[in-house]
Amino acid sequence: MKKDKTVEKQVKEIVDRYGAEKSSLIAILQDMQGAFGYLPKDALIFLNEVVDVPLARIYEVATFYNAFSLTPRGKYLVEVCAGTACHVTGALTLMERLERDLEIRCGETTGDGMFTLEQVRCLGCCSLAPVMRIGGNIHAYLTQDEIPKILRNYRQ
């Protein structure tokens, strides 16, 4: 298998930041997630060669945490809160509307690579319910009518 040199170089750089130890694994994976937008399979296999952690263990960690994704994520991550407060104030209708407008299902990425739609448990701002977070920005007291406008703003 021909390896991508730039991927290897990037992984090496990240590993050097934290040291090639088992205890640095999560920090390394977080930075890899940031650098690539997801955890590419090649990068994980290469990481296994530099860090003394079995690939099975790396895969375990990479699939366990929601912060890591094994498939490419879009430019903006759309997180719809489904915590108790948001749920009772209509998070489900928001999700339905987003699925319809973006033409993807929850967990998928749009064809143009702009948005990835995900459901999260609680964003920690229940007083603003129902909320969604796009690319780190919180949108509070949301109604589904506002969604097309918000998405248009991000698309520009």
């Binding site: 079995p54 690939l55 099975a56 263990r57 895969y59 375990e60 699939t63 366990f64």
Partner: peptide, 15 residues
């Protein structure tokens, strides 16, 4: 696989 065999070929995935 980890402690006796020493290869760690398998593990859990997802949660």
């Amino acid at each position: 696989c980890e402690q006796v065999v020493g290869v760690s070929a398998i593990g859990f995935s997802f949660r």
